[in-house]
């Protein structure tokens, strides 16, 4: 996830200051991890350093003074390049659940019990997400981001259930080497 490109994208609709960018980010991408202020300001400074954004001026608006940023032409080009570039599909398969299953087998613990508990945890999270998206008045952005997470959790669950069915074979394979 490229925070600099997302901030650049938010800037492309018009000049904005750091606090406003953070608020709009959290609003636009619900269910995502909220941005920290510090992260917003360091990222903006880097964008300015690389010539992708520049300082427009300051804006006090009755409150404390804030620096207003805007995207440069280079920034707009970079944003267009990034937005049209496909995301690499699963370049590295790093799977914490699988790692835990293998470790459980190696250490003589009960991988089936672990998978069962993991499944319960996944289902609990899926119920939470479903509740969020079926709350009356939920906007489409909320629904779509919840759906994204639900699809991934569902994929995990399917994988866990086929793995649970083949634990005996896996155990034999892992312990024989």
């Amino acid at each position: 996830m490229s925070t600099r490109h997302i901030l650049l994208g938010l800037l492309s609709s018009g000049p904005s200051h750091g606090y406003d960018l953070k608020r709009r980010h959290d609003e636009r991408f619900p269910q995502a991890r909220p941005l920290a202020y510090g992260q917003v300001y360091t990222t903006l400074q880097r964008l300015v350093r690389d010539g992708l954004a520049k300082i427009e001026g300051t804006d006090s608006d009755g409150g404390p003074e804030r620096t207003v940023y805007r995207a440069t032409d280079d920034g707009e080009r970079e944003l267009a390049r990034w937005a049209s570039e496909t995301a690499p599909p699963a370049p590295f398969v790093s799977n914490e659940i699988f790692a835990k299953v293998v470790v459980a087998i190696l250490s003589g613990a009960d991988p089936a019990a672990y998978l069962h508990d993991q499944r319960a945890a996944h289902m609990t999270r899926m119920r939470e997400l479903t509740k969020v998206k079926t709350t009356p008045g939920a906007d489409l952005a909320t629904v779509l981001s919840a759906d994204y997470a639900l699809s991934h959790l569902d994929a995990d669950l399917r994988w866990m259930s086929t793995t649970a069915d083949r634990l005996a074979t896996l155990t034999a394979e892992v312990t024989s080497r």
Binding site: H122, M123, M126, R127, T130, T134, D154, L157
Partner: peptide
């Protein structure tokens, strides 16, 4: 049999 449908429930 679909976990995403089951997630609409309160309990499983």
């Amino acid at each position: 049999h679909d976990a995403r449908v089951a997630a609409y429930a309160d309990r499983e």
